[in-house]
Design a protein around this nucleic acid. Sequence first.
RNA 1: GCUGAAGUGGUGGAAUUGGUAGACACGCUGGACUUAAAAUCCAGUGGGCAGUAAUGCUCGUGCGGGUUCAAUUCCCGCCUUCAGUACCA
Length: 997
Amino acid sequence: MQYNHQEIEKKWQKFWAENQTFKASNFSHLPKYYVLDMFPYPSGAGLHVGHPLGYIASDIYARFKRHKGFNVLHPQGYDSFGLPAEQYAIQTGQHPAKTTEENIKTYRRQLDKIGFSFDWDREVRTSNPEYYKWTQWIFIQLFNSWYNKNTEKAEDISTLISIFENEGNINVNAVCDTEIPEFSSEDWKYFSKKQQQEMLLKYRLSYLSDTEVNWCPALGTVLANDEIVNGVSERGGHPVIRKKMTQWSMRISAYAQRLLDGLSTIDWPQPLKDSQTNWIGRSQGAMVEFKIQNTEFKISVFTTRPDTIFGVSFMTLAPEHELVSQITTPEQKAAVEAYIESTAKRSERERMADIKTISGVFTGAFAEHPFTKKPIPIWIGDYVLAGYGTGAVMAVPCGDQRDYDFAKHFGIDIPNIFENVDISEAAHADKEGTVIANSDFLSGLSYKKALQKAIEALEENGFGYGKINYRLRDAVFSRQRYWGEPFPVYYKDGMPQMIDEKHLPIVLPEVEKYLPTEDGKPPLGNAEVWAWDSKNCSVVTNQLIDNETIFPLELNTMPGWAGSSWYFNRYMDSKNADEFASKEALNYWKEVDLYIGGSEHATGHLLYARFWQKFLFDKGFVPVDEFAKKLINQGMILGESAFVFKATYFVKNGCDIDKSNDDILIKIPVVLVSKSLFNSDDDFERVVKNYLLKNNFLNQNNENLLMIVRTPLHTDVSLVNSSNELDIEGFKKWRAEYKDAEFICEENDRDSSRAVRTYKVGREVEKMSKSKYNVVNPDEICEEYGADALRLFEMFLGPLEQTKPWKTSGISGVYSFLKKLWKLYHSGENGTFYVDNSPPLEGLGEAFKTLHKTIKKVTEDIENFSFNTSVASFMIAVNELTALQCNKRAILEPLLILISPYAPHISEELWHKLGHDTSISTAEFPVFEEKYLVESTKNYPVSFNGKMRFTLELSLDLSVSEIEKAVLNHEKTIAQLQGKSPKKVIIVPGKIVNIVE
RNA sequence: GCUGAAGUGGUGGAAUUGGUAGACACGCUGGACUUAAAAUCCAGUGGGCAGUAAUGCUCGUGCGGGUUCAAUUCCCGCCUUCAGUACCA
């Protein structure tokens, strides 16, 4: 009987679905294990073979854990809000919900083909109102909370209100907006309702604030830094301006320290932890205030080096700094304004990337040094960014290379405040071993002591204070988009009001157009039924807005990361209509035990999700404050692009050009040259010229007029076979413009009866993408080789975490492995199923050795997520058992369980043929027994000076001196030594022998 | 610039408490089967040199040093590629 993957895989996928084999129970005596994939955004392009890599790994692990006796939760769902669906809606007018639904269907169909052990009953979709109801609910919880630094946790806003009522805000230690005026309990009582609400907003964890954004008036939208090139939008090239916009923000900065501390409690990859650490960017230093001479203004700066305060010789402000316009002197005004204008055109990213050009302008104003009272010139420079710190730096050129370069460039003083340090060439940024000089009371002190003393002095004199600063900025939570979660918010008297939880979800309204409105409002501004009737608690038509009982609703929607910041909790109890998840479910599953996904989410999704989890933990909604114990980043699978090589012609300059030359270009055809015919540009040119001469498109006279350039063109990889040969007819059909092109091929006429013409393409490894025509669809692989082969091959490609190229030709290796495996169980007549049920006999030692060697290796490999090496050991096992002609049930049955996490369909089929009527998925994983691997001899490698010369089989019972004797008496040793006596003999019993000559 | 990861045959990769480099697979070459092809099976396959051959020698894990009886593995210094990215003051 032949191995028929299509039949087998269909059969078992159906069986698993019908029997709900992988349904996870929230009540079990078994230990729990929660394996999660980062859920996909269902794009219109469908899955390519790169996508399932992580899913296959997590599925293998989930199946392994089931074999090991765990109650496994392995869900899947869709991050189904997102920009591509919206853009498609703008282009085609189709509702994003519709296209998203279609895309999800495609994804599901593709995923089902690969044989994942997902519990689909728990599927979530972030765009589903039953789901985003709880996203809105969490938003309300955040709005109703503030961060108390005394208790180091989020608390209900009511506790803050009662503090205000009793003592005002003087003793409140909260994470909040900067520069909140102090008020007493009396003041609070006299505040109007609106004033009170305004004040509370400064403390809430989700709050409204004016944020600077990149506004593109032509597109009516806000752009990300990387969507802006040279000050204009990447799409369309429209001008972009910086604009302040009132937007929702999340006070993630409140959690900066806890997000940092939590990293040491979770088993995540170090590079990922590093990037979160750097993103949060904790730095210890001091805030220092500088008075501006002849004004009442002050400039606050944060510095990590208050010990170098006597080295300050100028200050630099960001061009956008609010004081710039007020302190600039009339003489400098024109220069400053011109500079501000020029920097406004540069994106933040550009300004940051460019470290070579030094630019800046003097404002004409002077600050006063807090200790020396000396005047300090105030400059502006675009290397200082408004959004970071206070948007101002105290420049210490002798201790900071950037400041040094700036000072050198503009001829500013560079005072040296370090003992015995030469700063004529470069700044001295080292801290260790540095002694401060020329610094009044800090002179003679080491860096550490000076730092401490400087902060003390700042605090004593009221010039500043010690501070820990974080780079992490509060997260903007508003998007001017349609296809996202609506806010459960309406506006009364300009103040945001939360809609009561019991009226959630607030469902996304229908709109005519998905574009921003003509007056620049977000797409929800197009909705006609988008007002809140606070009496009847329902969404009503805008015409009824009276601002008495019926109010306008929020027009922004939530960002992409909202729904993904808590979905892992929803899977625990995905159908619960009363809570985001029940207490029982949350307390049973607690957190994700293994989370697999890409490293590109390091500072987005993974940071926000940790933030929300900590918040939910503070409020007692979840039992743990880190949502994922262990995380693995799977690497990207790259595509193997294929190229044809087109000849592009130019008439050479400097020649006598007459009309006939144009004729040359007109009459010569489009020529595509096989990669096998050239290795260099010269080869290429020669091949093309030979062709043109031979076919009289060119004659010897005009040959020299022509310049031939090679242009590689991407070709669809599905038109290329595993030997890199192009399907020429297919290519012509695919690209009609080349239907008359001439393909210069390799003439392969060994067999004179049939000359074979082959066109070989060039290959290059690139990211898999539609535009490069190198996308390989998993459906086609499943069709031709089966899901088991796909799963094995994706794992076999290389280490999970690594980036690696996909090469479809390699899949034949795992496919023939599956066929060999199948054969092992079909040793009957004419290949019928047969296993020998007799108990193991003498002489089965080798087969048991193979089995247990494999059990050991595979168990270790799975636990180390080294899936590629276990596939190799399966191959070795099957090769060895085939050689042994092993057909014993005692070997073949446990072998099947080992393989089943990787290749579940074939394993399930053979398992049932072995006589089982329940799924293999819960069969107990075989246990490794040392006794089968015990050896009595060792084939010792014998080295001379570390170079292996021969091997020698010796009993493992021998003592060191017996081994030495045996080795030294061996004829090959004697020959090798040529009569010399060895200087030293190193023997590691059971490992090696090394003789030093 | 900074941070992180990685450099091993024609290709993907294997081997690190230092101990036989190249497992396993692709590809390639030769052979068997076939009218032929596919499929399948068998053998060979890092480079160089010597030998009819068995075999032996030699070089070899990005480069240059070092430690060691022994280095792909440890240390120092460089180079290259990929990814991320913050001038964080």
